[in-house]
Design a protein around this nucleic acid. Structure first.
Lengths: 334, 334
DNA sequence: CTGTTAGCGCTTTCAC
DNA sequence: GTGAAAGCGCTAACAG
C-alpha cells in the first residue's frame, strides 16, 4: 500500500492532475476547493501514502504544532522531565521534538541559545529549555525554562524549592547526629546549585555548626565530574561522616567511590542526594534523597508553554514546586 | 552581545557587505573565499549571534548530521533507550532529535511511517524506530529498529533475547513452586510480546504444566491498558499465585491493583516483570524482573545506524542482547 | 575570489 | 474553483 519513499506534494499533484496549490489547500482544509476535487485529491494522497514534510511546511507557515524540548543531554533528570511533558501533551494536538547535541554540549555555555536559533522561527512553535545556562535576552517564540541559570527572571520558569529541600537534607543529617557534613555542589552556573549550597550552609549555621570550606566541593551534577571530588572528601584525614550531594547522580557516584575505597554506606559514611530520579532507588543501599516532583515539573512547564503559545492569560509565570525528604537506606545515625 | 532574535543569512550578508552565497561559504568552510573576507564575515556572524536554520539548511543540502529517534511516547523504555543513545553519540558529531506525537500516537498503527515521512528526506540523516508497528517496505534513509513488530527482517534491528528471558521468568516462578501462573501480555503487534508469551507457554509445558487460557490476558504494555486485565486475573475465583507481566509497567500496575484489592505482594501473589526499567526498583516491594540491557541496546542501535549512514561495512544487521533475572522482592516460594 | 541564479517542498496571495 | 507565481532561509552550480 504505502510506497517505499519520499513522495512530495508535486507527485500528488501530478498524479491527481491538479496543481500543487490545490493539493496544499485540501491538505490544510482551506476553502476554495470543490468537494469532488478534494475527495479525489485525498484519495491520491492516501494511495501514495503522502505526508507533508515538516521542514518544508514550517519554512513557509510559521505554525507547526510542534514543541521543542532543548536539553544538553539525555540523562536521568531530563528524561524524567520528558515523561511529564509527554503526559501533559496528551490531547493538546501538539507533538514533541526533543533536541540534544552531542554528549558534551553542556560544555559550551549557551548551547540552548544555539539550538533555539537553529530550530525556532521555523520548526517549533515554542520551546522548553532544560537547565539552560543563560536566560537573558528575548526570544522570538514562547519559551519556558526549567531549573535555569538565574532564579526566576523575566523568563517564565518552573523549578522546585531547592533552598527548602537543601535545608531539609542538611537538617536531616544533623538530626542523625552528624556534624562533619560534606557537600558536593552542582553545576556552578545553575541557580539550583547555588540554592542547594545555600540551604546547606544555612542549616548548618542554624544548628550552630561552622561551615568548613574544606568539606565543600564542586561535583558538577555529572558522573564524570563527581568521582574526583567525592574521592577527595572520602580520603581526607578527618573525613566527613555524612555527605550531601547536590544531585542523585553525584550521590550515586559517591556511594560507588565509597565502596571502592572500602567504606560502607551508611555504616562508615551517610550519603543523601537530591532529585529522586528513579536511578536513586537502584543503588545498594537505595539512596536517601530529596525528591523534586520532576514529572510534575514537566507537566507544569508544558501547560505554561501552551498557554503562552495560545496567548491565554497566564496566572503565574514562575511555578515553584515543593520538595520532600525520601528516606531510604543510605543514611544512619551516629 | 547576542541579539534577541532570529537573524538570517541575509542579515549577515547585508551587515557584512557581501552576498549570501559568500556567507554560506564561510559557514560551510567551502573554498573560494579570501581569508580576510572569511574573517570579516565570521566576525559579523559572531557579533550578530547568527546560527543557521536547521530547517532551511536541511531543505537544500540533504545532510544534517542529525539523527532522529522516533517514539510513540516518552515512557520508561524509550527514555531509557534515549540515555544509551545519548551516550553513544558522544563525539560522533551527530545531534539527536527525538520525536514523539501526542500521547496516544501508539493508537494509530503506522505512526512511525508518518513521522518518518515528515522528517526524512530533509531533517534527519537516519532514524531509529522504537517499537515500530510496521517494518516492511523500504526507506529513503538508513533506519534501525529497536524491538520492532516482526522479528528480525530486512530492517536492521536491535532487540534482546525475549524468548530466553520469558522462559527464565517462568521457570523461576515454577522453581518457587508456583503452578497457577498468570500472564499479562504486551502489545499484540510487537514481536517481543509474542516471544514473551511463547516463552511463558514453553516453560510451562516443559514443566508439565497445562497452559490455561483463562490465565492469559493482554495488558498492552501501558499503564492505562494494564489495570483491567490485572484486576481480572486477581479477582478470579481461583486466582493465580503468581503473575508474569510482559513488561515492568504492567507489573507495577499489577502490584498496585493487588494492593488496592487487599492482596499482599509477594505474600498473596508473586509478580515478576520484564525490562528492568529504573521504575521497577521504586515499587514496594521492589520488583523482581527480567532485565534487558536497554541502554546498551540504544548504544548498539546508534553504532549500527552510524555505520549504515557512513556506508561502513556492517557486520551484523541484527543484534540481540542477553536478558537476565533480577531478583528483588516481589516473588516468593509457595 | 565573489555574486547571480536556481531551486529544495511547501503555503499563500492573486489572477483567471 | 483553480492555478501561476512568489518566497520562506539556505546551498550549489555557474558565471564573471
Amino acid at each position: 500500500m504505502a510506497p517505499p519513499q519520499s513522495v512530495t506534494i508535486s507527485d500528488v499533484a501530478r498524479e491527481a492532475g491538479v496543481s500543487v496549490a490545490t493539493v496544499s489547500k485540501v491538505l490544510n482544509q482551506r476553502y476554495g476547493v470543490s468537494v469532488s476535487t478534494a475527495a479525489h485529491v485525498q484519495k491520491v494522497i492516501d494511495r501514495l501514502g503522502y505526508e507533508s514534510s515538516l521542514v518544508a511546511r514550517s519554512l513557509r507557515s510559521h505554525r507547526t504544532h510542534v514543541i521543542g524540548i532543548l536539553v544538553a543531554e539525555f540523562e536521568p533528570f531530563s528524561t524524567e522531565l520528558l515523561k511529564g511533558l509527554s503526559k501533559a501533551i496528551g490531547g493538546s494536538g501538539y507533538e514533541l521534538l526533543a533536541y540534544s547535541g552531542g554528549g558534551r554540549a553542556g560544555g559550551n555555555a549557551g548551547w540552548e541559545r544555539r539550538y533555539l536559533s537553529r530550530l525556532s522561527g521555523t520548526l517549533i512553535d515554542g520551546a522548553i529549555l532544560v537547565t539552560p545556562t543563560v536566560v537573558d535576552g528575548e526570544y522570538t517564540i514562547p519559551v519556558v525554562a526549567v531549573d535555569p541559570h538565574t532564579g526566576p527572571s523575566e523568563l517564565p520558569t518552573v523549578d522546585s524549592d531547592n533552598l527548602a529541600g537543601a535545608i531539609t537534607a542538611t537538617e536531616y543529617l544533623i538530626s542523625l547526629g552528624h556534624v562533619r557534613i560534606g557537600f558536593l555542589g552542582g553545576r556552578p552556573d545553575l541557580e539550583s546549585a547555588r540554592l542547594r549550597e545555600e540551604g546547606y550552609r544555612r542549616a548548618l549555621r542554624a544548628a550552630g555548626i561552622d561551615v568548613n570550606p574544606d568539606l565543600i566541593r564542586v561535583a558538577g551534577y555529572r558522573e564524570e565530574t563527581a568521582d574526583q571530588p567525592a574521592r577527595e572528601l572520602l580520603t581526607m584525614p578527618d573525613r566527613p561522616t555524612a555527605i550531601f550531594a547536590a544531585n542523585d547522580i553525584s550521590a550515586i557516584r559517591t556511594v560507588d567511590v565509597a565502596r571502592s575505597l572500602g567504606l560502607g554506606v551508611p555504616d562508615d559514611v551517610s550519603v543523601i542526594g537530591f532529585d529522586n530520579v528513579p536511578e536513586s532507588a537502584l543503588t545498594s543501599p537505595p539512596l536517601t534523597t530529596i525528591s523534586q516532583p520532576i514529572q510534575q515539573m514537566g507537566f507544569e512547564a508544558m501547560k505554561l508553554l501552551i498557554d503562552l503559545i495560545n496567548r491565554t492569560e497566564v496566572q503565574a509565570k514562575h511555578r515553584r514546586l515543593p520538595t520532600a525528604l525520601v528516606e531510604r537506606g543510605s543514611c544512619r545515625a551516629v
